[in-house]
Design a binder for these strands. Structure first.
Length: 492
RNA sequence: GGCGGCAUAGCCAAGUAGAAAGGCGGCGGUCUGCAAAACCGCUAUUCGCCGGUGCAAAUCCGGCUGCCGCCUCCA
């Protein structure tokens, strides 16, 4: 079986056949006029999963993700906040990339910006004018939609249907209401670039054609983005690009379903959205990744706290399993590879892929096979989850504070024997330490021993005090027997 | 009005012709000072509704209902 992807262009699953040695991907990123929301992250995650799986299948991949930093909206924002549009753009780009890093989303190879590709944009518009696909009116340049026979193929719309439902305000400048702007004349106080049609700036759509063609060539493999871009953005991209080159544009079009909030699509312009920064304040990147991968990328996904909480529990199941089981150091081939591959090859079915991980875990409990643990870990990180080293904590002040408070309490309650033992024990443990990073672990180990001593003596107040203090700091104790307890970090 | 998508357990979600994956939650149990965790077991005779094709339908076809979206800026 080979990779199959759902291509919006054909409306069906297609076998993936790359055009050349390197798979070239273009992702429609943000128009950076406002802060990124959960929906943007989903689109980025789709590219991430696609890249990871292609890499796993031994394809070389080059991926581009654009930032549209010049458009009507950002100019409005500039006026509204009296802030340079470049600063507004940069701020949102920084937030977006920071968020992507938090989710361990693979970086694209390059993030081109519209404002840095004016030459390419202008020359593309010029080509379209020369070929008769575009015309200039008062410093604006429009694309002649009716001249491009395949218009509507991607979004499955016919020109007549569009006309019937047209809510497009009749513009005296356009020959046809369906025509769209490639270039817009600058109004006073607006950013502008010099062009053969005077001072102006690009329309939305043209920058993506110019940048993808410039960096990836006239024809490339995969174009991805949110489903809301199918019409008109991607439809227009196809029309512009193919009209200019006479060649096919992108071979496969992948569109992810949108993220909804109270059942309705998140959208920047209506303010109906959850900023990703806010979400990252409450949930870890791994949890958000789990939340998104649980649902197939083409389906609509509801954003709600209950879903994130559920994802956290689902994530914790795998994380805890990995923390508690020994893995095989070297794994020849992960178990259930054919099942996992089949799921991912089927249009990146992460939902099914996760199911396979849980099946492995169930088997792992029955047999305690280190090969299973290693397989789980392998798939988990293949899906982009960050798998940290087992229970190695950075030394941190909280643990030391707890230790000190416990000692103080021991003093108060005149537990002299224990205090003496601690000194010896602590010295032992610290001198045997090979790495300073073990300090927290060693102190916690000592605290667990003290606690178990109290448990044996049935001094539960003291034992519970230690447990509570650790728990308050996200350190969870698992009692395995009266003298064996382990700890782990609460999965967040 | 035109075009498109979706509907599977309490919640979420795979599955698109041949015995309903998985997760969360819930219930019962093992363990246990308690708690937590972990583990074990149970939790859809049935896939929005009606009709059709077929040996066989959640899966294909037709109709209906409901929700969502696009046609205007959007990941």
């Amino acid at each position: 079986m080979a990779l199959k992807l759902y291509n919006t262009l054909s409306g069906r699953l297609e076998k993936f056949v790359p055009l050349g040695d390197t798979v070239r991907i273009y992702t429609c990123g943000l128009t950076v006029q406002s802060e990124p929301h959960v929906g943007h992250i989903r689109a980025a995650l789709v590219r991430d999963i696609l890249m990871r799986w292609l890499n796993h299948l031994d394809y070389k991949v080059v991926a581009l993700e654009n930032f549209t930093d010049v458009d009507d909206k950002i100019i409005e924002k500039q006026k509204e906040f009296q802030k340079d549009w470049r600063l507004i753009a940069q701020e949102h780009i920084d937030t977006y990339l920071w968020s992507c890093d938090k989710l361990n989303i693979k970086r694209a190879n390059f993030y081109p910006r519209a404002s840095q590709h004016m030459e390419e944009i202008i020359s593309l518009v010029q080509r379209l004018v020369e070929k008769g696909y575009a015309y200039e009116k008062n410093g604006d340049v429009y694309f002649r939609v009716r001249k491009f026979p395949d218009y509507g193929k991607l979004s499955k719309k016919s020109i007549d249907d569009l006309m019937a439902g047209a809510r497009i305000a009749p513009t005296e400048l356009k020959e046809d209401p369906l025509d769209f702007a490639l270039w817009k004349a600058a109004k006073p106080d607006e950013p502008f670039w010099l062009s053969p049609w005077g001072k102006g700036r690009p329309g939305w759509h043209i920058e993506c054609s110019a940048m993808s063609m410039h960096h990836l060539g006239d024809t490339f493999d995969i174009h991805t983005g949110g489903e809301d871009l199918v019409f008109p953005h991607h439809e227009n991209e196809i029309a512009q690009s193919m009209a200019a080159t006479g060649k096919h544009f992108a071979k496969y079009w992948l569109h992810n379903g949108w993220v909804t909030l109270t059942g309705e699509k998140m959208s920047k312009s209506t303010g109906h959205y959850s900023p990703v920064v806010e979400v990252l304040g409450r949930y870890s990147g791994n949890v958000i990744r789990m939340y998104m991968l649980k649902t197939h990328y083409r389906k609509q996904l509801e954003y709600a706290e209950a879903r994130l909480d559920e994802a956290r529990a689902a994530y914790a199941t795998i994380k805890t399993y990995l923390d508690k089981h020994e893995e095989m150091p070297e794994l020849a081939e992960p178990l259930m590879l054919s099942e996992f591959t089949e799921a991912m090859d089927d249009d990146l079915n992460t939902s099914r892929a996760l199911g396979i991980i849980y099946e492995l875990i169930k088997k792992g409990h029955e047999t305690d096979n280190p090969e299973i643990t290693a397989s789980v870990k392998y798939y988990f990180s293949l899906l982009g989850f960050v798998v940290e080293e087992k229970a190695v904590l950075e030394p941190y002040a909280e643990v030391i504070t707890i230790m000190r408070d416990v000692e103080e309490k021991l003093h108060k309650e005149k537990e002299k024997d224990i205090l003496n033992d601690i000194k010896i024990d602590f010295y032992e443990r610290v001198t045997k330490m090979k790495d300073v990073r073990e300090l927290s672990n060693r102190i916690i180990g000592l605290l667990l021993d003290i606690r178990n001593r109290f448990r044996k003596e049935k001094k539960y107040d003291f034992a519970d005090y230690i447990r509570q203090r650790l728990m308050d700091n996200g350190i969870v104790i698992d009692d395995e027997s009266i003298d064996k307890s382990t700890f782990r970090l609460e999965a967040k």
